[in-house]
Amino acid sequence: MDLLTLLQVLDATVRLSTPLLLACLAGLFSERAGIFDIGLEGKMLAAAFTAAAVAAITGNVWIGLVAGIAASLLFSAIHGLASITFRGNQLISGVALNFLASGLTVLVAQAWFAQGGRTPSLQGAARFNPITLPFAESLSGVPILGPIYAELISGHTILVYVSFLVVPLTWWILFRTRFGLRLRAVGENPAAVDTAGISVVGLRFAAVGICGVLCGIAGAYLSTGLQAGFVKDMTAGRGYIALAALIFAKWRPWYALTACLLFGFLQAIALRSDLIEAVIGFRIQIQLLDALPYILTVIILAGFVGKAIPPRAGGEPYVKER
């Protein structure tokens, strides 16, 4: 395999990792605050549709992005209402929201565009276009580093760069700010946070809100960056892979980057089964590659390779007057 092919695969890895990374960090905020969220998939899907639909109507992808984030936030608000305010079962709420997104997006898409549950394909300013970083053209002649810069680092949409910047930002917020400390505390021991006079409900809603924003960006990226328009069920299980990545990363931001890049890489090479055969000499079933993120996560969860310990108060509604 030559450098150019490798770079192509890595390039695809970056593009496919981006939605996973955003969704994974979204889940990280939520679960660190003690709110399980298996509705990442539904939030992304709702955002993907809304972003594509609004971008198609207005012709402006930025308005689409804002609309996508708003849709995702709305889903977050329902999740917060069910799991924080009414102390319902967070897992059941997530399941319901996933179905709701899967059904509503097609219903509304059909009513608005009548194209069999998809949006019109987006062009020009209605989608995020690749950005060529400075000097990418002129440096591409430099051996090895030139192509890496021009092919791999340059030429992605703005949301890809944003998602990679969210990793250090998440780390900084969680581990270097007062808000982050409180957020982590509320996921471990909400009673202690409450005793200190800080609102558990407020913190948890803030976390769920951040989760909504990040899922919104992830969804908008799917329909306006990675692809040019919304199609039915286009998240294709990415929300669950992000959830798997979150466990794989043991709820830590930098590990999340690694896990998402790994899972993105698995998705990228699944598209190029000819390459795998050329490199390792025998055929690997694509289905095995599809299942690998889940199998790896089960192994990690089982504690055979390191132990993944979730936030202690995760999944439990906080009841003040016990």
Binding site: I78, L81, A82, S83, F86, R87, G88, N89, Q90, I92, S93, V95, A96, L97, N98, F99, L100, S102, G103, L104, V106, L107, G117
Partner: peptide, 19 residues
């Protein structure tokens, strides 16, 4: 897909929004 929406609402109301 209207069925999915109804199903989601039933799960939401009978499950998560029980309280």
């Amino acid at each position: 897909q209207i069925v999915l929406v109804i199903q989601a609402l039933v799960i939401m109301f009978t499950g998560a929004l029980d309280n």
